[in-house]
Every structure is written in structure tokens, then in C-alpha cells.
Nucleic acid binder design. Structure first.
Length: 938
RNA sequence: GUCCCCGUAGACCAAUCGGCAGAGUCGAUGGACUCAAAAUCCAUUCAGUGUGGGUUCGAAUCCCACCGGGGACACCA
């Protein structure tokens, strides 16, 4: 049959996809033209004292902004956006001044890689992608303040990213105050002699270059020659957070090698304590906090010095100084710098042959072991069931009892953690126990261990075999030992972190240039603020130099270094015109997303990053002890460590330097779930288009052939992508929005099912029909008051929906709205008393439809600022309460009583009701749960 | 291996302090409308809560063990 025939029978004024397609763009244009969702600032260009919400309580809600990829949005992406949009529309109607902005995280690898493939400039593709995203988001009716939108690639934006870099560069961390301070303060302290210059030299005696080197060593952003993660396949170095546990790049899955290279670092480790401690002040999901704690990996313990027989001292880190009397051997990482120094020329007399690895002398043993360890992959090292290692031939002295203990090297000790050396206490550490078993090393218990216990005992107990510690508990003994070590000069209390400093430079084109130049000394010089932004220059060849992914010895080469006329620059930085060399690395993709929550507050301010008054209003602490920050930050859990850790770090630096009043960027974090989708494979294992698969009798068919269903991410490779644009065409954006919000709680992942979307459309159709006659288009709303029963249903819905909205339980809120709609549907006429609150409560989910109906109901204005309905408490009291009466846990009857009936009366009525079931037996116990039920036990 | 989260009708999901397992959606079935179909409307259907124990007058909810799914960490001294 033809489509025209199909359409012919549809009532002319029904709410359909075609109707939605007419209504939706019209209201989107209205909102844009009227700046409906502009939020007023307290001060500056975006201040607006006449705005209906000026000076109202504020709410700052933000989504993790997207990277605008070339493939556009699929239906999974906007789930969180629709959630925050519904929430903020509700809060705006409830009286809040709502800030809900959206921007784009637009620097990064994919645009650059695409550019390399096609020869298009990354800016061209990035801008096209952003435009496409903007169109898709607009089409969903998302209520953003578009004046505040930006991309991290805008020079106006990255000017401030560079400015923050300069703040970090020009700061140092004062360990006494536990905060960042201007580098000038440090210089002043050196000059005044109030702070000792490292190495004990006199500041006034130091040559200028030496002074600069000293200062550079304190900066929070510094250049360091250190082992870094070099990824030849990507042609760039990577941060630790960007490398997977099996030693590959998170992006692209290329091998990553450890190379010593000169790179920019950020001293995030200085903030280790605060980054851990301040988690307690945040309203974040516990798993995310846990992941951050694990990543930072703070351990408290002590450094202990073990003198060797030569002049060297092996310093170890231990979290168990209380077990020092049980340290029966030591282990150095194979790469430890002291190894060569302590190795004697021959094996000591009586060396256990099992310790030598069969080598003729210690040097050979070490050489052989090192070679074997280097050849092993990370996986082989960690999966090894049996611990390996070799004796170095050297001994060290346990400072607490003078015992000579053998020193081993073994790859179970990591060079990169602590001091790269441990004291081994096999009695109370599982790894040391395993090693001691293999090498037949002595085991001394220093904590009382339960009888029959075999293995390393790591629990609490009384200290034994430890002279002055005997009888103490573990915690007490730790403190006592640290005090003893410090008094005797054998060690000191210490805290170490698993967290490493943040590797901040990348050898890419498509990133923020550093506002740094070098002079003839090769030392970095910050450009003055007046020279910002340092714009990314146009280059002929923006492709990075990549290499054979397995070529570990390749050297990074930055695309910008090829642009010689940009690299060499003549500047007057205070001592006349001189030639300088620019930094040619660029910043990592995380830089732009480290502070964007702040720029939304004051996006066009040319004087400061954000006006302090605007920052204090939108993000400042709301009460003593409150960290401040975004009121609700919604995004995927995949950013639990990387982005959220870096952003917290930068925010704390800005806080220390007095630029912001909040000490955390995101007060409340919410992880939305994912929308996944089914995919189908035929007998050959080839993916077939999911759209064309049909279900018959619980089996799935593509044409005639049966195909197997699997469940996974939505994506091109699985041929199961559904886009919001398709949904808008088939059903309208409102239907799509309602469906996404109704299909389950926001934080739960679930499968996409296009067929089920029709249910949401039917719901909207019913609401529409309550207001408009489908045949004539006439308004069928009357001013007749509601009957008492329906009125109570209305107010119960209002109360319930408000509660659900506040808790982000949109699925149950929508269920209640459907219920109310279904209550109103059978009524002869629609009462204004019910339909207006319903339309208003619908508007956060189906804003276009709500605006249209609101207008048809006779209102001139947008409903975005209409008062959200409030329940009348008097209407929430039920007329009567029905108590089920249980006898021995089974429902045997019901009694209906007035809501305020006294407990005794309920009890009596209940007992009378179930007299038959009791059959004369005497109730042993009668429990009355007010408002709930009566339970009789016989 | 350790830790965390989750298992409720055919599917997605509700269930307040432990108090009658069902709010809502899809699907299926039947009916109304129609020459018929689609769309729409109305109605019906279906689980005793992954399994086994325990606590309790009462357990989807609390506790223990196991099974299944997802995630994080994985020699960090």
C-alpha cells in the first residue's frame, strides 16, 4: 500500500512524528532567538539584573564535554545530556538560576590522524565535526546557554590554558604550608637566607645560570630527563595513566617502551596527600574514589638505612618498620644504581650454591640475571609462580640488631617504587615468604602468629623477638620504631606514593603550544602574559613522525620543530632583542579539560580566567568545610582517574594561588550508564546489519539465514549504530528523550531497543489528545474542577515526581506521569486543574511538546520559567487505609479504616476480620505496622 | 588471585525503615474501529525475586556460602 493511503486515515491533529517535526524546530528557534536558557552572572558582560532568576539560588550542572569525533553522535552518547537537561529544566522551574553549558574537547589524536590520512587540516575537520555536533544537540532540544559554549581549540580559550601553565610554571610547592606559592617567594627566601639553597651554597655566590637551575628544580612544571613511556607507533610519549597494565598505549594499543628522554613534567606528586584527603569532602561514587586512592597509592611507613660492608648505604622504604627485627635479607631491584658498587669480586666463603644462579662470580650472576629480567615481558614477570633472583655476594647490616643480612637482586622488587630496594621480612610479607622458601632464607617471626599458621602472617598481634618493641601492638610498634630510627639517625618516617609526576608534553601537532622559549643556556623562559596566546602555527606537514611500533630506539620528533621560522624567534623579554628557540612539544589532550568548568562561568572575560565574583557565585563553597565546585557533574566512569585527577590537581593549584575560592572542581559526580546494543553474526562469523535482522520464535534471522546475537558497544564495526537523528525523524526528539529517560535509571547500562520507542510516542500522543481534539484541532480543556479522587491522584503524582526528579530517578517520574495521564484519559473532559500541572511536569522530558501545549492552553510565554507544580499536603492524606491482615505470614483478610485510626482499634478490627482463620486459637503476638499491615502470630 | 557492583514476568525496569512482589514500557493474546490492514484505543496474559542456608512474626531488601554477568586492581614493600 502506498504511504499516502496510510497517512489518509490518521486524524489530522494527532501528535505524530510529522507533527513533532513541525513543532520542534519552531521551539528550538524560539529558545535560541529569545536566549531562553541564558543564565545571568552576578557581574560582568553576562550579568542581567532583569533576568527572572537573577540573584536566585544557583545550580551549576555540567556534562563531561565530548570529543567531536567524525562519526557524530549515536543514541548512547546523549543519555547523560538528556538526563542533565531534564534535571536542570526541572530545577529552573523550581526557582534556581541554572547554569548548564556545553563545549567541545577538540584537541587530540583522532583529528590529527584523520588529517594525516586525508591531508585535511585538523582544524577543518574539527570545526566541521563541532558544527555537526551542535546541530545534533540542538535537534534534541538541549537547553544550553549557548553564549558560554567554546572549544578547547579556540585561541581565546587556549590562551588561558597557556596562562594556567604559566601559573604552574611560576609556582613551587611549599612543603611546610602544603600549598603552591609564587616562585618569586622562593627567590626572596633564598635571597634573604631564610631558606637553605640545595647543596648548602650561598645564593649570592651562585652564578645566574646556577640560580636559574636551582629555581627550575622547584617549579611545579619542569623539564626533566627521566625514563618516560615512549610509543613509537604513535610517535609520542605518554603519561603513566595512558599506558595499560600490559605496557601498551591506551589509544591505538601500540607497544610502549621505557626511554630516558627530556620532557615536561607536572609535580602532581606534591599534591598526593591533598588529592587523597580531599576525596572525603566529595559526593562521588565510592568506586571512583577508590580508584583514585588506588592510583595515588599513598603508603605511610619509614625509610631505613642499611649500611653495606663497603661505604655504601642501602636505603629502603617499608610500611612495616615494626617488623625490622625480622628483616633477614634485602632485595634490590635489578636496575638499582647501587648494585654494581656493592658486588664483590668473588663469592663469599660458604655461599649457598642455590643463590649463585650457577655463575662463577657475583658480577657474572648479576649480569646474567639482569639480561634475563630485561628479556621478560611485564606479563611474564608478574605471572611468575616462583620468585626468581640472585645473590649479589654483598651483605648489609640491620641497624636495629647489627645482624649481617645477604643482599639479593630480584625482579619482584620494582625500580620505580619507593627506593627500589626493600628489607625482606619473610615472616610477615607474602612475597618475601615466597622468596625465602625458594632460596632457603631464615624466617624470624616478630609478630605473635597463631599456632598452626603457615606462611606470612600479615595480621595484627603482639610484637615478639624485637627487644624494645616486645609486647606492643603493630600500630604502636610502628610509631616507636620510627621514633627510635630518627633518634639514632638510622632512618625517618616517610610517606610514598604510587603516583608519579605527570608527563605533560607530547610530540604532536594538534595541541596547545607551550608558552615557553629557550635562550642560549638551554633553560626555559616563560613568555609574558601579554604574548598569549601562542598560536599554533600553520605548517605544511602536520603529520607526526611515527615509527615502526616495535622500534624502541627511535627518537621522538615534534611536528612543530620542522617549522624553523616559527621555532627561532626574536623577542625582547627584558634584556633587549634576542633570538630565542620555542618549545616545540605540545600539551596533552587533558590540558584543555583540566579547567573548562571554570571558563563556562565567565567565557568571554579578557582580563581574567574567571571573575572572582562569578566563580564564588557558581562554584564557591556553600558552607564551612564545603569544597565548592560544580553541583552535579555527569559523565562516564572511564574518566575516573585520568581527567578527574588532572582537573583536581590544576584546580588546587589555582586555589593555592588565590584564583578560585573552591578547592575542588566537582562537588558531586554521577556516572551515567551506557546504552549498548545487540549485534548479529552469520554462520561465517561476519557481522550483519542489526537493523535488518528480524526475530522469529526467539531466533534471529538475516534474510533466510539464522544469525547469532551478541551484546556490545554501539559502533560501526558491529553494524548496530542508531543515531538520534534517525530517532528524531521516526518519532521526534521528544519521544526519543522520553524513551531514553524512561527505559531505566540513569546510572544503569542497558540494551537499546528501537522497537520499544513507540511506547513513549503513544504516551505523548495521549497527553496531546487530552488537550487537543485529533479530528478538529479544537482545545478540549474545561475549567471544571477535578473530582476529589482525581485531585488526590494529581497531588500524589506531583509529590512523587518532585521527589524522583530531585534524586535523578527519571524513569519512575515518567512512570508516574504516564499513570496520571492514564487516569485522566477516560474522563469525559480534561480539566485545566489537572492538565496544566501535567504539561509542566512533562516539560523537562518533552520540552517541545510541553511548550506547544502550554501555548495552546493560552499562555504567552515559554514554560521554562513557569512555577513547577507544588503538591497540596492536604491532598496527600488518603481517605482510608487498607490493612492486609496476616496470620502466620499469610494474608487472611483485609480491613479498611480511617487513616488516623488508633493502633488498638486497627488491632481489634484486624482480629475480628480474621476470626475465622484463627479458629479460636489465641494470638501469641499481634504486630501492627502503622499504615502498612497487621501480622498475627498464633 | 584480591576488591567492588549487579542478578525480580519473554525483554527493559518498579517496590520508602525489612511489611500485600508490580508503577510504567515493549512483546504476546483477545476485543473495538476497518472491506481489510496499519495506526489508535480497551482488556488479558506472565514471575514469587540466580541457587542453598541463616536471622526475623515477616526477607527482593539484612547475614553466610555458592553460581552467573559486569568492572577495578593485580608483586607498590
Amino acid at each position: 500500500m502506498s504511504e499516502s493511503e496510510t497517512n489518509a486515515d490518521i486524524p489530522p491533529y494527532r501528535y505524530t512524528a510529522a507533527k513533532a517535526a513541525e513543532i520542534e524546530p519552531r521551539w528550538q528557534a524560539y529558545w535560541a532567538d529569545n536566549g531562553t536558557f541564558n543564565a545571568p552572572n552576578p557581574t560582568g558582560e553576562l550579568a542581567d539584573p532583569t533576568h527572572p532568576r537573577a540573584g536566585a539560588p544557583k545550580l551549576h550542572v555540567q556534562d563531561m564535554f565530548p570529543y567531536p569525533s567524525g562519526s557524530g553522535l549515536h543514541v548512547g552518547h546523549p543519555l547523560g545530556y538528556i538526563g542533565t537537561d531534564s534535571y536542570t529544566r526541572y530545577k529552573r522551574m523550581a526557582g534556581y538560576n541554572v547554569l548548564h553549558p556545553m563545549g567541545f574537547d577538540a584537541f587530540g589524536l583522532p583529528a590529527e590522524q584523520y588529517a594525516v590520512q586525508t591531508g585535511t587540516h585538523p582544524r577543518t575537520t574539527t570545526e566541521a565535526n563541532i558544527e555537526r555536533y551542535r546541530g545534533q544537540l540542538r535537534r534534541l532540544g538541549l537547553a544550553y546557554d549557548n553564549r558560554r559554549s567554546f572549544a578547547t581549540t579556540d585561541p581565546d580559550y587556549y590562551r588561558w590554558t597557556q596562562w594556567i601553565f604559566l601559573q604552574v610554571f611560576n609556582s613551587w610547592f611549599d612543603p611546610d604550608l602544603r600549598k603552591a606559592r609564587p616562585i618569586d617567594d622562593l627567590v626572596a627566601e633564598f635571597e634573604a637566607g631564610t631558606r637553605e639553597v640545595p647543596g648548602g651554597r650561598a645564593w649570592s655566590q651562585l652564578p645566574a645560570v646556577e640560580r636559574r637551575k636551582v629555581i627550575d628544580g622547584f617549579r611545579l612544571a619542569y623539564v626533566s630527563e627521566a625514563p618516560v613511556n615512549w610509543c613509537p607507533g604513535l610517535g609520542t610519549v605518554l603519561a603513566n595513566e595512558e599506558v595499560t597494565p600490559d605496557g601498551r598505549s591506551e589509544r591505538g594499543n601500540y607497544p610502549v617502551f621505557q626511554r630516558s628522554l627530556k620532557q615536561w613534567m607536572m609535580r602532581i606528586t606534591a599534591y598526593g596527600d591533598r588529592l587523597v584527603d580531599d576525596l572525603d569532602a566529595l559526593d562521588w561514587p565510592e568506586p571512583v574514589k577508590l580508584m583514585q586512592r588506588n592510583w595515588i597509592g599513598r603508603s605511610r611507613g619509614a625509610h631505613v638505612d642499611f649500611p653495606t660492608d663497603g661505604d655504601d648505604v642501602i636505603s629502603v622504604f617499608t610500611t612495616r618498620p615494626d617488623t625490622l627485627f625480622g628483616a633477614t635479607y634485602m632485595v634490590l631491584a635489578p636496575e638499582h644504581t647501587l648494585v654494581d658498587a656493592i658486588v664483590p669480586t668473588t663469592w663469599p666463603a660458604g655461599t649457598n650454591p642455590a643463590w649463585t644462579g650457577g655463575a662463577a662470580d657475583p658480577a657474572e650472576a648479576v649480569r646474567t640475571y639482569r639480561a634475563a629480567a630485561a628479556a621478560k615481558t611485564e606479563e611474564e614477570r608478574t605471572d611468575a609462580k616462583v620468585k626468581t633472583g640472585v645473590f649479589t655476594g654483598a651483605f648489609a647490616t640491620n641497624p636495629v640488631n647489627g645482624a649481617k643480612v645477604p643482599v639479593f637482586i630480584a625482579d619482584y622488587v620494582l625500580a620505580g617504587y619507593g627506593t627500589g630496594a626493600i628489607m625482606a621480612v619473610p615472616g610477615h610479607d607474602e612475597r618475601d615468604w615466597d622468596f625465602a622458601q625458594t632460596f632457603d632464607l631464615p624466617i624470624v617471626r616478630t609478630i605473635e602468629t597463631p599456632e598452626d599458621f603457615d606462611g606470612a602472617y600479615t595480621g595484627d598481634g603482639a610484637v615478639i623477638n624485637s627487644e624494645f618493641l616486645n609486647g606492643k601492638g603493630v600500630a604502636e610498634a610502628k610509631a616507636a620504631m620510627i621514633a627510635w630510627l630518627e633518634e639514632k639517625g638510622h632512618g625517618r618516617g616517610a610517606t610514598t606514593f604510587r603516583l608519579r609526576d605527570w608527563l605533560f608534553s607530547r610530540q604532536r601537532y594538534w595541541g596547545e603550544p607551550f608558552p615557553i622559549v629557550y635562550d642560549e643556556t638551554g633553560l626555559p623562559i616563560a613568555l609574558p602574559e601579554s604574548m598569549l596566546p601562542v598560536e599554533l602555527p600553520e605548517v605544511d606537514d602536520f603529520s607526526p613522525r611515527t615509527f615502526d611500533p616495535d622500534d624502541a630506539d627511535s627518537e621522538p620528533e615534534t611536528p612543530l620543530s620542522r617549522k624553523k621560522d616559527w621555532v627561532h624567534v626574536e623577542l625582547d623579554l627584558g634584556d633587549g632583542l634576542k633570538t630565542y628557540t620555542r618549545e616545540t612539544n605540545t600539551m596533552p589532550q587533558w590540558a584543555g579539560s583540566c579547567w573548562y568548568e571554570l571558563r563556562y562561568l565567565d567565557p568571554h572575560n579578557e582580563k581574567v580566567l574567571v571573575d572572582p565574583e562569578n566563580e564564588a557565585y557558581w562554584m564557591g563553597p556553600q558552607r564551612p568545610g564545603d569544597p565548592g565546585g560544580v553541583d552535579l557533574y555527569v559523565g562516564g566512569v572511564e574518566h575516573a582517574v585520568l581527567h578527574l585527577l588532572y582537573a583536581r590537581f590544576w584546580h588546587k593549584v589555582l586555589y593555592d594561588l588565590g584564583h578560585v575560592s573552591s578547592f575542588e572542581p566537582f562537588r558531586k559526580l554521577f556516572n551515567q550508564g551506557y546504552i549498548q546494543a545487540y549485534a548479529f553474526r552469520d554462520a561465517r562469523g561476519v557481522i550483519v546489519p542489526a537493523e535488518e535482522v528480524v526475530e522469529r520464535d526467539g531466533k534471529y534471522y538475516y534474510g533466510d539465514q539464522e544469525v547469532a546475537r551478541e551484546y556490545g558497544k554501539m559502533g560501526k564495526s558491529l553494524k548496530n549504530v542508531v543515531t538520534p537523528d534517525e530517532m528524531s525523524e521516526q518519532y521526534g526528539a521528544d519521544t526519543f528523550r522520553v524513551y531514553e529517560m524512561a527505559m531505566g535509571p540513569l546510572d544503569v547500562s542497558r540494551p537499546w531497543d528501537t522497537r520499544a520507542v513507540v511506547g513513549s510516542q503513544r504516551f505523548l500522543q495521549r497527553v496531546w489528545r487530552l488537550v487537543i481534539d485529533e479530528e478538529t484541532g479544537a482545545i478540549r480543556v474545561t475549567d471544571t474542577p477535578l473530582d476529589p479522587k482525581t485531585r488526590r491522584a494529581l497531588h500524589q503524582t506531583i509529590a512523587g515526581v518532585r521527589e524522583d526528579m530531585d534524586e535523578l530517578r527519571f524513569n519512575t517520574a515518567i512512570a508516574k506521569l504516564i499513570q496520571l495521564t492514564n487516569t485522566l484519559t477516560p474522563l469525559q473532559a480534561t480539566s485545566r486543574e489537572a492538565i496544566e500541572p501535567l504539561v509542566l511536569m512533562m516539560s523537562p522530558f518533552a520540552p517541545h511538546l510541553a511548550e506547544e501545549l502550554w501555548r495552546k492552553l493560552g499562555h504567552e510565554d515559554t514554560c521554562a520559567y513557569a512555577d513547577y507544580p507544588v503538591a497540596d499536603p492536604a491532598q496527600l492524606v488518603a481517605e482510608s487505609v487498607t490493612y492486609p491482615v496476616q496470620v502466620n505470614g499469610k494474608v487472611r483478610g483485609r480491613v479498611e479504616v480511617a487513616p488516623d485510626t488508633a493502633e488498638d482499634a486497627v488491632r481489634a478490627a484486624a482480629l475480628a476480620e480474621v476470626a475465622d482463620a484463627l479458629a479460636g486459637r489465641e494470638p501469641r503476638k499481634v504486630i501492627v505496622v502503622p499504615g502498612r499491615l497487621v501480622s498475627v502470630v498464633v
